[in-house]
Structure formats: structure tokens, C-alpha cells
Write a protein that binds this DNA or RNA. Structure first.
Lengths: 364, 364
DNA sequence: TGCGCCAAAGTGATCGATCACAATATGATG
DNA sequence: CATCATATTGTGATCGATCACTTTGGCGCA
């Protein structure tokens, strides 16, 4: 009753109750060959008679057979599944990164799956350990730092692991250094426009990229002989990278603050900063220049439009996924792309205002 | 170095070459019990001696054993994995929806994985079929329409399927009707402020929610005796739901257009519309009122801040995932939540301007 | 005709967990 | 102390695919 295979010439035509999915053996019986031959066909083996292939193809079609990927993985030890580990309370979900990574994975014949992990770093690490050792995936690409876990190739014991450079504390590949370096460019540009007094609204400390940008900012300010009026870190974790932190930071400045240039952690933060400036009567960029990060779409249409750093997230995603695939396949790791970030100047930056309070000392 | 198994008293200390992951049998041997007892422990079976449990726990710890989920799934026929199918060229990735869904899944003891599918509707349907029949997942929640596929419970043949109501062409559950109804509220509010001439910048036709909102808009305008000066649909698919379509729509209006109120497909579109208005000297809301949809975060900080419809995406995600889980477990489907959308009024809407051209006929 | 060789397909074992059922330990009772 | 009911653990089969090895078939050549 469970399986009603229609014999070659027996006329027991009752294809009505397929309570179970067909297996290789049933396809084999239907096609009049052995299960191993069907398996060969599924594997795409070369040495097969066209007639045999045709018979199997017909059987597959008639039974609507789809291979049980679980059983296949069990035997082969590989799943062709790559997981992307994504921390759950992530405000700006990197859609282009994911899309590009998915495309690379797909082209290489892998499935890409995103595992969303809520909870903090310990939960993420634990989940990563589980995933790596579960046999359910061939590789893991983590979009968050994984303290205690190292990048590694695929072994019989565990899946391969790659940490996205932006979140990697070990400054690997295009890592944090290349990531933040454009901040220096932004500071230099603003200095060229006459700005001398800067403020940095940073991202949360846990993020490698946030720390990197902060460091580059501080170095650039020091190198150019400018003044930093502080680095504001977001107090509430829940609003890290959100507009609120930018709003609060600017709203907290004294009305006669000498700050004329703000380097914000990202475009959301920049937007909040601009709003706060507007509400206290500071024109942007007349009184205050603001630079964001991300080149978010809304930044091109906001008023004023946002000066920002365009990040090639697609390239990042492609690179990270290629790296993972090379580790899974046991090939040589691919090289990091050169430069992914670009300063984009729009309406939110402009010349520094004249400074009535403290006249600029010209002593050259 | 990784694991230093301390034998009880046997001194055959050769833990040097763990080339393979340990299995239940090895754990059993290490603990001095049978493999079935270990399996019982893993299943969380009740009738077990505390002493036995302790021995097994120690063995698991010492060997760093993690069950092979693939093998388990093979035998049980279930994976405890639920997949969310996500179309790849998706502009506004529904982070809160995903986060809420992930939380619900996690609490019910499931893993949630997101499968990103690039390509169009046919590819998505094919991928869904594969996923449903691969045995790799217990259920699928699709974030895109799946023409030809019906919602269904889990069977031995295939996984359960749920289509997120926002993308479901069959108007199921809280479906498209409830979804778009707040548009009527927005139109009524604007009519109350004196607006008589409306424009709707719609989302792409393929989306059930876009069609629904458009229909509600047209009904409301007709019912209240107002004038609709057209419904603009985005021409280029690649910019569907993007600010560009809003920008173009407003930029294309004649300078003496009587339109004073715009209902935009979402906040991005609204932002583009406002930008275009600003560039041609139309004050918002002085000359033009604009309403968005989504309550995107930037809308609270943009200038002007955006009037919009707040959508409880978390509730949507929870609901969809609960529905899926009930179908997977074979329980009664859960009821749809009542009302998820709420009109939020901010700076981008205001009283209609005086109308010099065509004086308003008062004939009550 | 017979032999050997290569191509093509078949047979049985196997991956690591759980299921069904059998077997043994444990404790209460007369 | 024997006996039974119950609690706890052990033995062998099984899920559906692939791997390793064996067998059969077809053809050329002496």
C-alpha cells in the first residue's frame, strides 16, 4: 500500500496514494535499472548509455522524484550549504552584502542560508560552535566577531569558518585598517575647507570597524594639528548606529561650541545630528558640516543631501564568500580587493564658518 | 590539547588522533553504557538514573561530542529547520520581521534559516519546490508570492508552506485588506485638512500589498468625492519602492498642478517626492502634503519629519512564523492579529494651501 | 571460436542517529 | 526467599543516498 510501483506490464494502475516520497530504489524499479545506476545518473556520471539515461529521466519525471538531500549529506559528509551568521539586533542589515554573497555561493553550486542569532556575543559563539560541529553546513561566514574561534578550513570534524572582515578583530585581509582609512580623507577634506574643530560620533566599542574608524579619526586630527572636541560613544546599546545617538550628541553640545565638523558613525547617525542642528538653529553646512558613512539611499534625497563614504558592500560580500568557498574546497585563499571605500561629497559639508569667538591665529 | 580525556583508571592514554567526530557509540563506550542509552539522554528522556546521566554528561564533555544533526534528521524525518524564502533584489529588507520570526522559531525549538533567491518569480517557485521536497527543512515561509503553490501542512512527502500575508495573492488571514485599509484613514485625514486633489505613487504591480493599497486609495478618493490626479506606478523594476520613483513622479507634475496631497508607496518614495518638491520650490507641507508607509527610522529625523503609516512588522513576523509552526506541528492554525497599522502624523502633512486657481465651491 | 579488455551496470556495505522490541536490574510484597 | 510488576538499559533493524567492489556485456583480434 505504501508504494504502488506500476510494473512494466502489470496493469495495476493505481498511482493514487503516494504517501511517501519516492526513493532511488523506486525510481530504479520504475526505470528497470539498479539503484546504483540511478545514483550515477544523479551524480552526472559520464559513462552511461543514452538509452539508460532517457529511461531514468522519464522515471524521475513520472514519479516527480527529488533526491533526499539529508540522506545524501549523511553519506557524503558534505551538504553544499554555507551559512551566514547574522546577529539579530542589527539595525542596518547589509542587504547588498548578502545578495552578492548569495550570488557567488549560488554560482559555485552552494546554497546560502542565513542563520539569525539573537542574544549577545556568547550566544553567537555558542551557536557558531554548534553550527560548525553539526554537520549541517560545509562552512560558516560570520557577520559578527567570534572571540575564541579562529578561521579554519573544512575538516572531517568541523565546517570551515570565515569572519567578515568588517567584524573581524584580527584585522585580516582588507580588514579594519583599509576599512577606516577613508575617514582620514574626510578629515583632510574638511580641514581644507577651513574646519579646525571636530567631533566624532562613534559606533559601539564592540565593533572592530567602529574602533578602527575612531583610531583613524584621532590619528588624522592629531597629524593635521586640528582639535578634537571629543569622541561620543553611544550610551544605549539598543540605539547603537541609530539616529538617536547622533541627535543626542549634537543636542548636548553647548550653544557656543566651537565644533564645526562632525564625523558620524554612519548615515543614520549623521541624519540625527543634522536634525538636532536644525532644531537649535544651526544651518548645515553653514554652521556645521556633517559626514556620514554607508551611502544609504535616503542620503541622496534627504535635505540637505548627505556627504558620506560609499562602501562597496557588494564587493565585500563577494570577497567574503569567495574566501569561505576556497576554505571549504581546500583551495588557496583568494586575495582581498584593493579599495572599497570612497568619499562622496554632497550638501551636508561646506566651508567652515567665520570664527568670531576665537580668531584664528596665523603664525606662519 | 583540545581535549584531555582523563580515563577513570584504564591507562590506555592515546587521545592523540581524533580525525573524526565522535559518535553516539564512542560516547557510549566512553561512558560504559549502550548507544541507545546515550540516545535517550540526548532526547531528554525521563526515566534515567541520575548516575547514568552524570556518566554520559562527563563523556560528552570530555569528547566534546555534538550530535550529527544530519544523521538525526535522516532517521526522524524532521530537521527542526524552518526556512524563510527571501527574494534577492529586495530593497527594504524587513529586519524587524525577520528578527521577530527568528525569536518565535527559536522559542519553539526550531532553527530559522533565510534562503536568499536571486532571479524572478519562476526561479523562486522552483527553489521553493526544491526546498519543500528536499527533506532539508520542515517548513518554508515565503516572503514573495508563489503562484502555483498552495499553503499546506507538513506531510511525509513535503515540508509545510506559508506565504507571508503581505505577499500573498490569495488575501489570506490579515491579508491585503487589513494591510491597505489605513490608506483610507490617511486620505480621510488629509481631506479633513482641506485637501481635494490627490496623487498616489504606487508600488510595483506584482506585489499584493501594492495592489491593495492602490485599491483602497481609489475607493477612498471616490467615496469622499475627491479628485485623484492619477496613480503613478514605478516604471523601472530596479527602483521599485525606491526614492527615485517618488522624485520622478513629483518632478513630472506640471508647475501649476492642483495636486496638494501625495500618498506614497513607502517612506523611501515619500522622501524622493519631498526632495523633488523642495527643488522646485514647493514647501512641504505648505504647498504639498506627503504621506509615506513603513515608519522607517530616518523618517523621524528627516527634515521635514515624515507622516507615515507605522507597520507592526514584528507582529507580522511573529504571526507568520506562528502560522508556519502550527502547520509543521499539525496543530490548529493561529488567528491573525487584529490591527497592525497605525497612521502617524508628523511634519510632512498639513492643511491644504488656499486655492487661487479654482475657488472651492461651497454649496452646502 | 576463444580470449582479453574495457565499458556499463549490479550487489552489498556504510554513514550516525533513532525506533521497536527484548532483556535485565530494582524494589515491593506475601 | 520467591515472585511479580515496574523501572531502566541493551540489541538489532532502519532511514535513503553513495562508495567500494563485483559482475555482465560488447567488441576486436589472433
Amino acid at each position: 500500500m505504501t508504494q504502488q510501483s506500476e510494473q512494466a506490464d502489470g496493469e495495476s494502475a493505481a498511482p493514487a496514494a503516494p504517501t511517501r516520497r519516492p526513493t532511488v530504489k523506486q525510481v530504479a524499479a520504475h526505470a528497470g535499472v539498479s539503484h546504483q545506476t540511478v545514483s550515477r545518473y544523479l551524480r552526472g556520471d559520464q559513462g552511461m548509455k543514452p538509452a539508460t539515461i532517457a529511461r531514468i529521466e522519464q522515471a524521475v519525471r513520472e514519479l516527480d522524484y527529488r533526491p533526499d538531500l539529508v540522506a545524501r549529506s549523511m553519506r557524503t559528509g558534505r551538504t553544499r550549504v554555507l551559512a551566514v551568521l547574522l546577529p539579530s539586533p542589527v539595525q542596518a542589515l547589509p542587504t547588498p552584502t548578502l545578495a552578492a554573497a548569495a550570488e557567488v555561493a549560488h554560482q559555485a553550486g552552494y546554497f546560502m542560508e542565513v542563520a539569525v542569532v539573537d542574544g549577545g556575543t556568547p550566544e553567537r559563539v555558542e551557536r557558531a560552535r554548534d553550527l560548525l560541529g553539526s554537520g549541517r553546513v560545509d562552512g560558516v561566514l560570520s557577520m559578527g566577531a567570534l572571540p575564541g574561534l579562529e578561521e579554519r578550513p573544512r575538516t572531517p570534524e568541523a565546517a570551515a569558518l570565515v569572519v567578515h572582515p568588517q567584524f573581524d578583530d584580527r584585522l585580516r585581509g582588507l580588514g579594519a585598517l583599509a576599512d577606516g582609512s577613508v575617514v582620514a580623507e574626510a578629515v583632510e577634506h574638511l580641514a581644507g575647507l577651513g574646519h579646525r574643530d571636530f567631533l566624532h560620533i562613534a559606533g559601539p566599542e564592540e565593533w572592530a570597524s567602529a574602533r578602527s574608524r575612531r583610531r583613524v579619526y584621532e590619528e588624522a586630527v592629531a597629524r593635521l594639528g586640528l582639535t578634537s572636541h571629543g569622541v561620543v560613544s553611544p550610551g544605549a546599546e539598543w540605539d547603537a548606529w541609530g539616529p538617536r545617538s547622533g541627535y543626542d550628541a549634537v543636542a548636548a553640545l553647548p550653544l557656543d561650541s566651537p565644533v564645526t565638523a562632525v564625523i558620524a558613525a554612519n548615515d543614520n547617525v549623521a541624519l540625527g545630528a543634522i536634525r538636532a542642528a536644525g532644531e537649535r538653529g544651526w544651518a548645515v553646512p553653514g554652521r556645521l558640516s556633517v559626514v556620514g558613512w554607508d551611502d544609504a539611499e535616503f542620503g541622496r534625497y534627504a535635505t540637505p543631501t548627505l556627504s558620506t563614504v560609499a562602501v562597496d558592500r557588494s564587493a565585500q560580500g563577494r570577497y567574503a564568500m569567495r574566501r569561505l568557498i576556497s576554505l571549504v574546497a581546500g583551495e588557496e585563499p583568494v586575495d582581498a580587493p584593493e579599495q572599497l571605500n570612497r568619499l562622496v561629497l554632497r550638501e551636508s559639508t561646506g566651508p567652515a564658518p567665520a570664527r568670531p569667538g576665537r580668531p584664528r591665529t596665523i603664525d606662519t
